Simulated assay, not measured.
Amino acid sequence: MSEIEKDLGNTSGDYLHSIAKAGLAAIPIIGGGASELFSLLIAPPLSKRRDAWLIRLAEGIDELRETISEFQIESLIDNEIFVTTVLQATQAALRNHHEEKLTALRNAVLNSAVGIDIDESIQLMFLNLVDSMTPWHLRVLLLFQNPEKWFEDNQRQAPQFSMGSPKGVLESAFNELNGKRSFYDILVKDLNTQGLLGIDSLHTMMTGSGAMAPRTTDFGNLFISYITPPY
């Protein structure tokens, strides 16, 4: 028995595995040469992703039990939004390999488990947003929730200027985005269209303190709370 299979043998893993199987059942059955291709090239990494994802969830549920005294895993059996979240997040996780997105999906499941005070329809909307975003959408959003705190948390020197623009903040935080305006302009417009970021352009000149001001909307802050660990 592999280490992964051993890890999935615990209570949290068994429970989550039962839920996730229903989500995997949604994958259509294929035949002929396509079936052979699926068996040889797709099924093994898909199973590996599934097992790694379920272990990630099981470890998160165990952390809830250790850090939140009133949390009871048995209460999740009849928690419909939790079950739906696990199914939705599992299908999204199987389509993704980026750590930021997997972490966001995991945190969404954990927040649904503890009963976060967010309308169920909004929770499902947030799950769809995570699924459709790139990791860069998440990075830009987290930066502009509180740029000063971001630089402090990441042990980076914040830009110092008397006049500047949010563009300077972004390119100081992520040097790899220098000269890629066409790319990050799309990211910002996407986040603005989704109601998460309060600006649709980073190029307006303003004071240095203005450039470093938070840019996320209330809806954006709610989204961030949903993809942040509940402990």
Rank of each mutant, 00 (worst) to 15 (best):
M1A: 15
P44E: 05
F151R: 15
V188Q: 02
A158M: 12
S112I: 01
N192F: 09
S201N: 14
R106P: 06
A20D: 01
N10F: 01
T103E: 15
L129W: 06
F144P: 02
G32W: 04
S47T: 08
R139M: 05
E66R: 14
A92T: 12
L40E: 13
P28Y: 05
V169I: 10
L177P: 07
S225E: 13
P214I: 10
L141W: 05
L170N: 04
A92V: 04
W150P: 07
R50T: 03
T228K: 10
V169E: 06
F144K: 03
L222Q: 15
P166E: 13
P229G: 12
A213P: 00
N192H: 12
L127S: 05
L222T: 15
L197C: 07
P159A: 07
V114S: 02
S162P: 08
F126H: 08
D131S: 13
K6L: 11
F82A: 00
A92I: 04
I116T: 13
S12G: 00
T11C: 00
N154P: 10
M125A: 00
E59D: 13
E80P: 01
G164P: 08
E171M: 05
S35M: 11
E100M: 14
F219R: 14
I116A: 14
F144R: 02
A158K: 14
Q160G: 04
K101H: 05
L76I: 02
L197T: 03
I73P: 02
N175S: 08
Q91V: 06
L187M: 10
T84A: 09
N178W: 00
L87Q: 05
T67R: 15
S209I: 13
D190S: 09
V188C: 09
L141F: 03
L57R: 10
L170A: 08
P44M: 09
P44I: 11
A22F: 00
E100H: 14
G168F: 06
Q91E: 07
A92L: 07
G115P: 05
G164A: 13
L57P: 09
